[in-house]
Design a protein around this nucleic acid. Structure first.
Ligand SMILES: [Mn+2]
Ligand SMILES: [Mn+2]
Ligand SMILES: [Mn+2]
Ligand SMILES: [Mn+2]
Lengths: 228, 228
DNA sequence: TAGTAAAATTAGGCAACCCTAAATATGGCA
DNA sequence: TGCCATATTTAGGGTTGCCTAATTTTACTA
């Protein structure tokens, strides 16, 4: 007559689920070394944990092939992701954090907050749909706004775009991007696009900016009229 | 050439330090069973942890006699206590928590917040000196406001008093105390005091309240003119 | 198709924390 | 002063989660 599911996930397990969720977004199963690289752990550590998580029904493991989340595992990942992104939003909105400094803090807090606290923070912010980096915040039911967006280097010259999402957690990258005047919502026009991973030139307000490919490809943008 | 002190304490270690700090407030060393009772652990678990903490220089252990914090251990305890009490204050002030529900949340968050976050919360609140229960909040340097106060049953009949501190973390007790109209800052007059752990009668606003000894002894009060 | 480099798993260990059962020290009382 | 109940510690064990070294599987290439 105890609770049917223990359901309490450890910090490690939650971080594994998030990592696997992120990696498998590309469509392919997550390999042991993908996960190890993502989390900064050794491959044998991941092998061991994967076995345990499979035993808990959180993921499916095809040995030597890779790993995919079960519905239960995905639910866990989305719950943590919701916590992470609401925390980031709250810290930026209410406690003066910059978007390049919130990630670390959220990475720890996401494992310590109660559901009550998360919902209070979300309410205080008016239940936002996106976090400070433009990442969609999963709703309590697991659904989330899914904007169709394009990496900046794929936008045709002459097109106008709106920056929607900055896919980086790296503080230095984020500070650089902000220093150029870019953040989610920024409107720009593509002036030039060099081939072979060359830089992108945009007009942003009254300035022109040249943005290297590595950074530009982190910038996911909406191009009005495309894929309406 | 690495950091001279690792300095990062685990959740368990932080809770041990807080417990020992609280127990030794009475002046005596903390016994193994005191600590075990406080934390809800077995005595052998405490014996083992005490050995480890002594090895880290966080406390001094006189086997079979008891345990006292070193300066380093006290510093750790006060740091966690500061976090705990600022978190409680913030949750009540800014996120609509009631004082009977904050403790649990703070008990987990106190191990996950950075110093930066704590100081931002403290700043947002105007660097309060007391938490919602009236407990003094240690300052970053470890000092704290130390009010001279008296348990309600020790106040003489006829005296006026101000409730300063409610020494309970129990949600039911706290809800009861609040339901009577008592919270830190409340001004009252003692109308009657029965002997043999009998109840205290007070006038509070226009009402008279009879308060049992168990509850009354949790209520630490300032009696104007006493101990000036 | 055999050979091999890379990826993954297995083997073996370790530290932190917790537990129960057994042994031992302590302090008070007869 | 010696005995005994109680407090404490030691012994032995379990889980989580990480590591390095050794082994095995896979997939690609010659
Ligand atoms: Mn983040
Ligand atoms: Mn995390
Ligand atoms: Mn508390
Ligand atoms: Mn705690």
């Amino acid at each position: 007559m105890t609770a049917p599911t223990a359901d309490e996930l450890t910090t490690s397990v939650e971080d594994y689920l998030k990592a696997i969720y992120a990696i498998t977004r590309q469509g392919h199963p997550a390999s042991t070394s993908d996960i190890a690289g993502w989390l900064g752990l050794s491959a044998p550590s991941v092998s061991g944990m994967v076995k345990r998580l499979a035993g808990q029904g959180l993921l499916e493991h095809r040995p030597y092939k890779g790993v995919e989340l079960t519905a239960k595992g995905r639910r866990g990942a989305l719950t943590v992701l919701r916590r992470h992104r609401i925390i980031e939003s709250y810290l930026v909105e209410r406690l003066g954090y910059s978007w390049d400094s919130v990630h670390q803090e959220a990475e720890r807090l996401e494992h310590a907050v109660s559901e009550v606290l998360i919902e209070r923070m979300a309410d205080a912010l008016g239940n936002p749909e996106f976090d400070p980096h433009g990442d969609p915040i999963p709703r309590p039911d697991g659904s989330m706004a899914e904007a169709t967006s394009t990496p900046m280097p794929d936008i045709a010259v002459g097109q106008e775009g709106v920056l929607r999402q900055v896919r980086s957690n790296d503080a230095e990258q984020l500070r650089f991007i902000a220093s150029v005047g870019l953040k989610p919502g920024a409107v720009f026009t593509v002036l030039g696009q060099q081939p072979f991973h060359g830089p992108t030139t945009i007009r942003l307000g009254d300035t022109e900016q040249v943005i290297g490919h590595q950074i530009a490809s982190l910038l996911w943008c909406e191009v009005p009229g495309e894929q309406g």
